[in-house]
């Protein structure tokens, strides 16, 4: 069941010393990636310094002031520049805190899934045979298992909360990394530099993670940039189904999901601000991912992601 396309050999040879310099040049030439980086810097700043810059406690309710509109719209309250939600909480503060959760969930889930998948994939590709069979069968089980069910399993068995959400979204994507890492490793396994390391008496782990890994990393880094975006969207969908983080934790996805009863009522600000936050962030990550792909390896364009 292993996807043969993955084993199409993708040759590359990233010369590390000049990477950063070339990256700087390439970035300066392109406009959009710079904009994307600017957006992400703002989001990261909010995530890092949320408690310092947030004007209010994001969970402080005030039922009497619920659904106050933003800006100068009639009925607006100057204390809440972006208005309040259904419990009278400050939307601006929740957005700022939400950046923290959305980024945290997106990045950590990808790091967990990426590390797990990459290591398993490299091991499977390197050893082949039975080890490969076992790991790839587990991958098949996971792929054949509807992701939504897996999500509910983890959230129900371990209880709801951010750590468990991150865990399940991470576990949900290890297979992608494993398959690609495996294919790449197979194509590298017989290369001269691996033979050289072997003849110098390096052990398996050293060969796998010191020699091979750096040479298979490029496509994995690119995929992970796209996956950060898709994890942020998954969190929103899970919130819609009532499976996301608890409602006391402000997240963009949760805010958007809560806003759906207010759309018909014309309370647009509940949806528009978190919606813009999600879209801009995902857009920025995607643009950056595109650039990263073109920069690291233009040949990967057709490789299936």
């Amino acid at each position: 069941m292993v996807n043969p396309a993955i084993s199409i050999s993708l040759k590359q040879d990233v010369r590390r010393p000049s990477v950063w310099r070339r990256a700087r040049f390439s970035l300066i030439r392109a406009k959009w990636p710079l904009v994307a980086i600017a957006i992400l810097l703002v989001v990261t700043f909010c995530a890092a310094f949320g408690p310092l810059i947030s004007p209010k406690d994001p969970n402080r309710q005030n039922l009497v002031l619920r659904l106050a509109p933003p800006f100068q719209v009639e009925g607006a309250n100057p204390e809440f520049p972006l208005g309040t939600d259904g419990l009278g909480r400050d939307i601006l503060s929740r957005l700022i805190y939400g950046a923290r959760v959305s980024l945290l969930v997106g990045l950590t889930a990808v790091v967990i899934g990426g590390m797990l998948g990459t290591s398993l994939g490299v091991v499977a590709g390197y050893f082949g045979g039975r080890v490969d069979d076992i790991i790839m069968r587990i991958a098949d089980v996971q792929l054949a298992f509807p992701f939504i069910l897996l999500t509910i399993m983890v959230l129900v068995v371990l209880g709801p909360g951010i750590p468990n959400l991150v865990l399940v979204l991470g576990i949900g994507q290890w297979v992608t990394y494993a398959r690609i890492a495996r294919g790449q490793t197979i194509s590298q396994r017989e290369k001269e530099y691996v033979e050289a390391a072997r003849s110098m008496g390096a052990n398996h782990w050293r060969i796998m993670f010191r020699s091979i890994l750096p040479n298979v990393l490029a496509p994995l880094i690119i995929i992970s940039s796209f996956n950060v975006a898709s994890v942020i969207l998954s969190e929103a969908s899970l919130s819609f189904l009532g499976l996301g983080v608890p409602p006391t934790v402000p997240t963009w996805g949760g805010m958007l999901a809560e806003s759906r009863d207010q759309l018909l009522a014309g309370k647009w600000w509940l949806a528009v601000f978190p919606g813009i936050a999600i879209m801009m962030t995902v857009l920025a990550i995607n643009i950056l991912g595109d650039w990263l792909r073109d920069f690291l390896d233009p040949r990967l364009r057709g490789a299936g992601f």
């Binding site: 402080r60 309710q61 039922l63 419990l87 009532g242």
Partner: peptide, 17 residues
């Protein structure tokens, strides 16, 4: 609970406040 009674999750949060 969430999703069982009218606006339950929000009422619970309001009581806690």
């Amino acid at each position: 609970p969430r999703g069982r009674y009218l606006n339950d999750a929000n009422v619970v949060q309001a009581i806690a406040q």
